[in-house]
Design a protein around this nucleic acid. Structure first.
Lengths: 383, 383
DNA sequence: TTACTAATGCAACCTGTTTTTATTTCTCAT
DNA sequence: ATGAGAAATAAAAACAGGTTGCATTAGTAA
């Protein structure tokens, strides 16, 4: 953020934000600790804290005695006022999670939905799941500071789903518009791979890593990119859509798994991949060959991303991440010869929560951006 | 930049930087104009200006009379004290340019070098060209605020040339170390494609565009990326090296041109491409076929970059940019079917100056970053 | 009860910005 | 030339915010 000049009142706002940042995400801190972290003097921190306490952004905790000396007053970020809602619209299920502003999930709800469900049915399921999660968290719409919805497909800057082959009647949907009617807070819409990537950077395998390519492979194969720790969307939200290039094998990658010749007829489509990996784990030759072919095709697209972006880390997520033990070795073997410098490779351990948690994180980031903006007056929490 | 808290002296530094920014790159401004731009009050701007004038960062110009009222004192950024040096190490030539801190090139020098020249010979040519440019600008080493060197190959974070196939004995060279011995200012080393991309964003086709893929095609084909207006290097400086992926045709792209069956034997290798384009312009079938094949292969790599990153703009530069009239149509024709959404396509008009100017720009950015850093005391210019 | 520790509360001081008012210097019209 | 108007400069007073330093308070340990 480019900071512009100003008078002492601006300095005050800068210091207010600095104090709030010092207390954000941390456990409770005493004034002396805040003093150390911010570099500000004690009386100043005291006055700033008083102001933040008065406006509801901080709460005071009972002092923690037992140590030597006078017990310090303890302050922490007051997260009970506002909440965010994250939603993941998948092929087979809708997930919703309500989190407080510390990022702690206070309630979540998953509802199954038919893969064939059309626009109206799916949207109704989304609304029902969201309402269910809010109800179970005892959070009203008025307490929501931001909502973020994740979906497959290319999501344009203004929340339109531009190019979605996975969900029926989903292409061209104004998802932001649909959701905005239900909430009177900012509604963000984002691609599911991008959100999962964000989660990996937040609490997953990519913590503290600047440039990350996240590959989500399950029913379909897609990618999300983190550049400088932030989601890279590109001009039209189509960044990471390397699978659309016929030269690399992503378009046919999962077909090696679903087309496994010895697939029992009673396996659900969303569980087909896992079945093949399980068979491969036992050493069954046809399954191993399917995994081999899958790894080969997956590696091509990953290599294209790695060569284009040179990320520090590649994270594999989605359905196949549960089978990392079987997948990683052949993938490594196919990927390395295609790269100039083999990248670090990790398998996500977030299973099917990655997207919905990413939606929560993006909503939190949106709130934080306003919270940390020195130029706007600090908004009062809604409580 | 995340700003942290502080006292009024920090506010002073913020306002100093704000004032300097307001005057940087602009023509001379009166105090009243600076007042408007910064939002600061007049006495403050006066005091800040006085301080910057005293430390040598600003200069005062003769007042401009003719208008009503008392003539205003005029101030502008004082760029005559410090300079930057940009160097482009090519296969056939070395270029050096000296620029003042306004970015105005005050002297430049180009010297030819044999494509077969080894490490010692080429480094000597680099030193001679740099010395020549400095001499012709009448600038001493002590006046240099930063130096930036551009070279083909993957350039690591610490200025090592990691993977260079174009220049003999160049692979593994500690270019930053070699150059640092000659100068007592920061020496930056960067990939040539990245620098050319930076120039396009500065004064070329990509001005004001956030995300740009720049494709440099001449003797070799490579790419540089601008993300958020800044060079994206990646973990090891290998971002943009999509040409290393055998699946896309960059490795063989230029061979269609150099392998043109009717090539006269007296054509220099660095002029072969231009000759084929010239023949294609006349409609000669074999030349048109060569261009067609070249465009096809070029499009594959560009499509991979576009699908990976979804940039707002693709700029074609390097030797082939002089033949944009012949190349653009077939390239567009081959590229569009490979992309989800055909990107904007532009041909560079900077010809062979793109890299050396990018080196100048990166050096300037390095100086600016220090200049605009609120946390460091404003360094005095060397004059 | 006394000594020690560490946090709190208060007052004087310093820095930096703004507002206000007066002064200078130029152009234009008479 | 001379006075009116315009626009910039100069100086002083007021204000806001942060820091230092010192006295005070509330605990623990002997």
């Amino acid at each position: 953020m480019t900071i512009s000049g100003g008078d002492t009142s601006r300095l005050r706002r800068i210091n207010l934000v600095t104090t709030l940042r010092a207390l954000r995400g941390q456990g409770p801190l005493s004034l002396t600790e805040v003093t150390k972290r911010t570099g500000l003097s004690r009386p100043t921190v005291e006055s700033l804290t008083e102001e933040l306490l008065g406006s509801g952004w901080l709460k005071e905790l009972p002092p923690h005695s037992g140590h030597m000396g006078r017990p310090a007053r303890l302050f922490s970020f007051h997260s009970t006022g506002d909440y965010v809602l994250g939603i993941d619209i998948g092929s087979y299920s809708i997930r919703a999670a309500v989190a407080d502003l510390d990022g702690t999930v206070v309630a979540s709800r998953t509802e199954g939905v038919s893969a064939d469900a059309g626009r109206a049915v799916r949207l109704a399921a989304v609304r029902a799941t969201a309402a269910g999660a809010l109800e179970s968290a005892a959070v009203g719409c008025a307490q929501l500071a931001a909502v973020c919805v994740g979906t497959t497909g290319v999501v344009s800057h203004d929340g339109l789903v531009k190019r979605c082959v996975g969900l029926p009647e989903w292409d061209g949907l104004d998802l932001a518009g649909e959701m905005a009617a239900d909430f009177d807070c900012p509604v963000l819409v984002e691609n599911d791979c991008n959100l999962a990537a964000l989660t990996e950077g937040w609490i997953g395998e990519a913590q503290g890593v600047d440039d990350v390519a996240f590959v989500l492979s399950g029913v379909r194969t897609g990618a999300g990119l983190l550049i400088g720790g932030r989601v890279h969307r590109g001009r039209g939200g189509a960044a990471g859509e390397i699978g659309a290039l016929p030269l690399v094998g992503w378009h046919r990658a999962t077909s090696h798994l679903t087309g496994y010749p010895k697939m029992p007829p009673d396996i659900l489509p969303q569980e087909a991949a896992e079945y093949v990996f399980a068979r491969a784990r036992t050493g069954e030759p046809a399954a191993r060959w399917a995994v081999e072919q899958y790894a080969h095709d997956l590696a091509e697209g990953i290599a294209a991303l790695v060569l284009a972006l040179d990320p520090e880390l590649v994270v594999i997520g989605g359905g196949v991440s549960r089978s990392g033990d079987v997948l990683l070795e052949p993938l490594r073997r196919h990927l390395d010869p295609l790269c100039l410098e083999p990248p670090a490779l990790a398998v996500s351990s977030l299973s099917d929560q990655a997207v919905v948690l990413g939606a929560v994180r993006l909503a939190l980031d949106h709130v934080d951006a306003r919270l940390y903006d020195v130029d706007t007056v600090l908004p009062e929490p809604s409580s």
